[in-house]
Design a protein around this nucleic acid. Structure first.
Lengths: 191, 191
DNA sequence: GTCTATAGGTGGATAGAC
DNA sequence: GTCTATCCACCTATAGAC
């Protein structure tokens, strides 16, 4: 299956941003890796922030789709959380952050449209987690005190932070322990 | 008390890096804020990565000193953890990340000397937390399963991630809840 | 759609006067 | 130690031929 030029550009750009950040890449970097010219890239994405915005919306769609897939395939809340954790392992292995985690760090330097899109990612993402936590507590599978929303935010923070610190420490195995440990904390003690 | 020009430059640079990142600031930015010229900055810090390195070593000294102060003033492990959490609140309010958290995201774009210095920050930092967790568990004040080192990494990740996501979400009140919630998790149920 | 060429600006860094 | 002036590499973006 051959992907379109646009998708190819977005794939390369996403990998670079997740590794080095939005402010540390240029059209020249992408052109070199895709094997084309800077001007050609501008034909597909007129400005860098246009490219950045498409990057975020595509990423958000993909992640929310993956979460939907987890939702439909699995019924156990605990397994949903484990599958959620698995989504991060691949990124960790390639020493990449979550695209929106990286962009959150650079948030103040982004165009307004990109800032809003990054916020939307975290909103949708945390809403999904909140629902999983609520339904899991309801059927007795999960156990925790207080608002599910706060726990959802804590889980998101932990994973984003694990990816962040892993970029410096390169101790991915231990970070995997961290993430699995975090999820198992929510398992009901009685089950 | 009048601070030296060097300290003034470092203060301004640190604030910018913690807000916008290392790759999104220039000598021109600092010069404008300090009220001097780019050439004058180069007199104090010959290259940008020299400035960056001093930024990291100064920050690490300050943080490790603050942790030492907590260590000498307080004997309760739980209170030490709470004081640790307090260190992050100020940063959160100004919508700044931990300097080394920001630099961890940009890690691959930094000079080798800066990369090593950032690693050293996390090493020293996590060692301190590990010791607090171990001594707290020993005297029955704290309760947790498994290796203290893994828990120390999890706590560091959570705080770094909370600061990261807060930059996008600006929901600092909730992030404070997240951080306090995280610490109280370690309180012994019996006490 | 792709290219070469280039505009117009900013990056880090240096020379040399004061 | 501070400045102005300048270098050169690179940035985003555009013009215009093919």
């Amino acid at each position: 299956m051959v992907q379109s030029k646009q998708e190819q550009i977005l794939d390369v750009a996403e990998a670079i941003v997740r590794s080095r950040g939005y402010n540390a890449f240029s059209y020249a970097d992408i052109a070199a890796e895709v094997g084309t010219s800077k001007a050609s890239l501008h034909h597909h994405f007129a400005t860098k922030s246009d490219l950045g915005l498409r990057l975020v919306t595509r990423f958000t769609q993909n992640v929310l789709q993956a979460l939907d897939d987890i939702e439909t395939v699995h019924s156990s809340a605990l397994i949903k959380l484990r599958e959620y954790a698995r989504l991060f392992e691949g990124a960790m292995e390639e020493n990449q952050m979550c695209l929106c985690g990286m962009l959150a760090a650079e948030h103040e330097t982004l165009s307004e449209a990109m800032q809003v899109a990054v916020n939307d990612f975290f909103d949708g993402h945390e809403r999904w987690l909140e629902q999983v936590l609520l339904s899991g507590r309801e059927n007795g599978e999960l156990e925790f005190d207080g608002e599910a929303k706060v726990h959802a935010q804590a889980i998101v923070s932990s994973f984003q932070g694990a990816l962040l610190v892993a970029k410096s420490q390169r101790s991915m195995k231990r970070m995997n322990l961290v993430s699995s440990h975090l999820v198992e904390n929510y398992r009901a003690k009685s089950s």
